[in-house]
Design a protein around this nucleic acid. Structure first.
Length: 872
RNA sequence: GCAGGGGUUCCCGAGCGGUCAAAGGGGCAGGACUUAAGAUCCUGUGACUUAGUGUCUUCAAGAGUUCAAAUCUCUUCCCCUGCACCA
């Protein structure tokens, strides 16, 4: 008997699948299905088990759909541009291109050993000019339509590196390379994509998506549609329209707060306040809103005053760290009496708190609920909810306000002052300004020769920077900002449809055939950013007429995170990263797949465990041995039990996999296997079992499939169909009854020291529903039994104390709930008759005795919820 | 801080109003097999109790709705994810 040599088996089938091009797809007559896992950033650390889990979840689904007769597109690619490659260049003097290529090579070899159904002909690599050429092409289209534009915006700046820092590179307000150097906030002219142009559609289309509800909720909150009023405040004779959802509190505005990152902040700062504001800004050493929000709410007076449009009061304007620069006007009207944040700010800086809604304001809490207006001139007495529209109407009639719909979503800042990104195809000409590079001149390729570590690397290659203007031919410089890497991942799924096209971004017909993605799989951490950008791009490309759909992914699934041994987060620094190759060598990748998927529902977090995987190996070895030991005959007739069990399993596993409940599918497969493990099964049942196993453990399924004489590949075999007529729930119940009776009999035999069983008598009350009722009725007449009866039926102690009046109630309850409690006892009686033969095989004579009346049933036992047994 | 999602028995995790002392796995304990170890198989694994059974205590904590709550509602505590230059 050969042993389970998983390394050899897995290699063999992986090669065989590749040689036979099993997973390379083209358009055909079958319905298409596009399964996509979010592509990885090829990090130098290589793939870890968490990636493997993600791809395996997708792979099981792709294999399942493939076997269900779909033409399945399941591609893989690399989101290869990004910060880590550049950090490696700075820290270890490796060129980002080399770092990336090395990482990709490693990723591919690791992924191939996972046995995944990727179509390796369609790989995309975003760092390749063949790919990012089309990122640049899209940029030009956006520029043409006015959706790509420049404006000033704040960045983290390290004066020592002389460069912009990513939020990630700022640690506690200091530079990642210079721990003593405080990061400064600087304003630079940067490129933006006008995502807000699609805000309404992005928001409205969420409802139509078959995505997790929580993700949809997060996107809605992120886009943040709100109806409000824009009110004109005058500051230094200039009009500032301020957005608010609470115009009802306009009479209570006692100060204004402008974002500390606002581009017009300095217009408001007076000479006397200059130093104070400068000092304040120095305290802000990150542009990350996360940092700002967790910091104390700080502010400083700018020296300017705004005029309240309804009261004409002069109110001070503060600069604050908790106001978002790009939302609304980047300034808020503060009503400390009725907003908690404003309240705390006012307390801190001793600003007047003016109450305008009747309600309780304490030392620590503002009154933020609904109420009647006070101190509000002609609106005094109006309910605050009504006042929202009344005051808005008034402001409109005075020409001091208007109704607006506001979105929290902001335009997407795509500029990065870094090397390893897609160059922005713009040339700055002294005369013509920002000019688009001609389409025919794309791609604007990254020059290899640059210096890292100080300033923007692209600026260090003057040959590349200096060019001529595409418009006037005069002297010009290239844009040295590159694009955010989210740009690359916003349309990659379309490129897979036609990944090698040199003429076009993709062939529309191909994209429309394969896309949108039917099932997208990736981490929940992308709920807001990536998953909004990809939707934005899809809508834009649809508007260009390139595709005929407006949403990228029909269905979305978030896999859970994989933690390290003992629940500790897997990380390089903790040294607990599990590499898939180590695992495949030790246990085989099928075992690893089975283990990872059996641990938890795919959307839940789970932890790696070296011990746990042994359990998975065990069951795989048992399956292997079972198929080694047995032969499978086409003409063998399965027992009714096996027929029922296999069909039920087919039915349930099909649903479980469809719904991503792989862990439950595995439990059912194990139970099926354990059921037939010591029996003979037919060839077709053996085939069906292996088919059910194939998506989860494809290699061993393929191996055993061939071993039992099949010639084609199980990976592309047809998924088994459930024959409902073979499912016999009654039979399964009987089996349970038989096995529990059997154990009971054996136990009695042992206890009673019976050498040889001569006869088994089983007593049952036939019409249990009726018997129970009559027992209760009897019991109700005589107090002593009353409690027993009621307790047994209702298990409700409260009932005891209410005495006789309860009888009527009981009857109702019993007739209503008897089904839950008692009716199955009658079923058991029927089953017993069926089970009789089964038991006789083992114990000789078995007699089933019906207790004819309730009195007789009572006599056998006070409350026999199980058949009474008498063994002689 | 804001937004979203969670806390289930020794551990990991199913369950998401009645058949729930709660699937499955792991661990642990006992038994079978073995010279022994390993592997494998069987049994047990909240407490007390019975031949079958029953009673009590459990699903983060507290309160509530219901004849009935792990499951529904509210409050509190803790954990995870995201917060726009990590991808």
């Amino acid at each position: 008997m050969s042993e389970y040599n998983f390394v050899e088996i897995e290699k063999k089938w992986q090669n065989s699948w590749e040689e036979n091009k099993l997973f390379n797809v083209e358009k055909n007559d079958k319905p298409k299905y596009y399964v996509l896992e979010m592509f990885p950033y090829p990090s130098g650390d290589g793939l870890h088990m968490g990636h493997a889990l993600n791809y395996t979840i997708g792979d099981v689904y792709a294999r399942f759909k493939l076997m269900n007769g779909f033409n399945v597109l399941h591609p893989m690619g690399y989101d290869a541009l990004g910060l880590p490659a550049e950090n490696a260049a700075i820290k270890s003097n490796t060129h980002p291109e080399d770092y990336t290529n090395k990482s990709i090579t490693r990723y591919i070899s690791q992924q191939k050993s996972l046995g995944i159904t990727y179509d390796w002909n369609r790989v995309v690599n975003t760092a390749s000019p063949d790919y990012y050429k089309w990122d640049q092409w899209i940029f030009l289209k956006m520029f043409e339509k006015g959706l790509a534009y420049q404006k000033e915006s704040a960045v983290n700046w390290c004066p020592l590196c002389n460069t912009v820092l990513a939020n990630e590179q700022v640690h506690d307000g200091c530079c990642w390379r210079h721990e003593e150097t405080k990061v400064e906030v600087k304003h630079l002219k940067q490129w933006f994509f006008k995502t807000t142009a699609y805000a309404e559609e992005l928001y409205d289309d969420i409802d139509g998506l078959d995505w997790p509800e929580k993700t949809k909720a997060m996107q809605k909150n992120w886009i943040g549609k709100s109806y409000g009023t824009e009110i004109n405040f005058e500051i230094n004779n200039e009009n500032w329209p301020i957005f608010t959802t609470r115009p009802d509190t306009i009479y209570g505005v006692t100060f204004m707060v402008i974002s500390a990152h606002h581009k017009k902040l300095w217009d408001l700062v007076t000479a006397e306040q200059k130093n104070a504001v400068q000092d304040f800004l120095k305290q802000l050493n990150s542009v990350s809103e996360k940092d700002l929000e967790t910091m104390d709410k700080l502010g400083v007076f700018t020296g300017s005053y705004a005029i309240n449009p309804v009261t004409n009061e002069k109110i001070p304007v503060y600069a604050g760290n908790f106001v978002v620069a790009d939302y609304g006007a980047g300034m808020v009207m503060a009503v400390p009496a009725h907003d908690q944040r404003d309240f705390e700010f006012a307390k801190k800086y001793n600003i007047t708190i003016k109450q305008v809604i009747d309600g309780l304001i304490t030392e620590t809490r503002a009154f933020t609920q609904e109420g009647n207006l006070i101190n509000s001139d002609k609106f005094t007495g109006v309910n605050s909810k009504e006042a929202i529209s009344k005051i808005t109407d008034y402001l409109i009639s005075e020409g001091k306000g208007r109704r607006v719909v506001n979105f929290k979503l902001r335009d997407w800042g795509v500029s990065r002052q870094r090397y390893w990104g897609t160059p922005i195809p713009i040339v700055h000409c002294e005369k013509c300004g920002a000019v688009a590079v001609a389409e025919k001149d794309l791609p604007v390729a990254l020059p290899r020769e640059v210096k890292f570590g100080e300033g923007n690397p692209l600026l260090t290659n003057q040959d590349w920077v200096n060019t001529s203007c595409p418009k006037c031919g005069g002297k010009a410089k290239r844009e040295t900002d590159t694009m955010d890497t989210f740009v690359n991942s916003s349309w990659y799924y379309l490129r897979y449809a036609d990944s090698k096209n040199n003429e076009k971004i993709f062939d529309s017909e191909k994209a429309n055939y394969w896309c949108p993605i039917d099932q997208y799989i990736g981490g929940a951490e992308h709920a807001c950013m990536h998953l909004i950008y990809i939707r934005f791009y899809t809508k834009f490309l649809a508007d260009l007429g390139l595709i005929n759909f407006r949403e990228p992914a029909k269905k979305l699934f978030h896999q859970g995170m994989l933690g390290g041994e003992g629940g500790i987060k897997m990380s390089k620094s903790k040294g607990n990263v599990i590499a898939p190759e180590t695992v495949s060598e030790k246990y085989g990748i099928d075992t690893a797949r089975l283990f990872l998927l059996s641990l938890a529902s795919p959307d839940k977090a789970r932890d790696w465990s070296d011990k746990g995987i042994q359990g998975s190996l065990k069951i795989i070895m048992r399956i292997f041995e079972y198929f080694e030991k047995n032969t499978f005959d086409q003409n063998f007739i399965d027992s009714k039990g096996i027929q029922s069990k296999i069909n039920k399993t087919i039915k349930e596993v099909t649903i479980d996999i469809e719904e991503f409940k792989y862990n439950l599918a595995i439990i059912k497969l194990r139970q099926l296997f354990e059921y037939f493990e010591n029996q003979q099964i037919s060839k077709s049942t053996a085939n069906n079992f292996l088919k059910l196993l194939a998506p989860i453990c494809p290699h061993i399924a393929e191996e055993l499939w061939h071993k039992i004489g099949n010639k084609d590949f199980i990976s592309v075999a047809t998924w088994p169909k459930c024959d409902e007529s073979k499912i016999d729930e009654q039979l399964e119940k009987i089996e349970m009854v038989v096995s529990s009776l059997r154990l009971d009999i054996l136990k009695i035999k042992e206890l009673a020291k019976i050498e040889q069983i001569k006869k088994v008598k089983i007593f049952v009350a036939p019409d249990w529903k009726w018997t129970a009722l009559s027992i209760v009725q009897d019991a109700c007449k005589e107090r002593p039994d009353f409690n027993i009866a009621i307790k047994a039926l209702m298990a409700n102690d409260e009932m005891k104390s209410h005495g006789g009046e309860i009888q009527t109630l009981l009857k109702t309850i019993i007739s209503k709930y008897t089904d839950f409690f008692e009716i199955k006892k009658f079923d058991e009686y029927q089953m017993l008759l069926d089970a009789k033969t089964e038991l006789e095989k083992e114990f000789g004579v078995v007699e089933i005795i019906k207790a004819e009346t309730s009195a007789e049933a009572k006599a056998k036992s006070a409350f026999p919820t199980k058949p009474a047994l008498l063994v002689e």
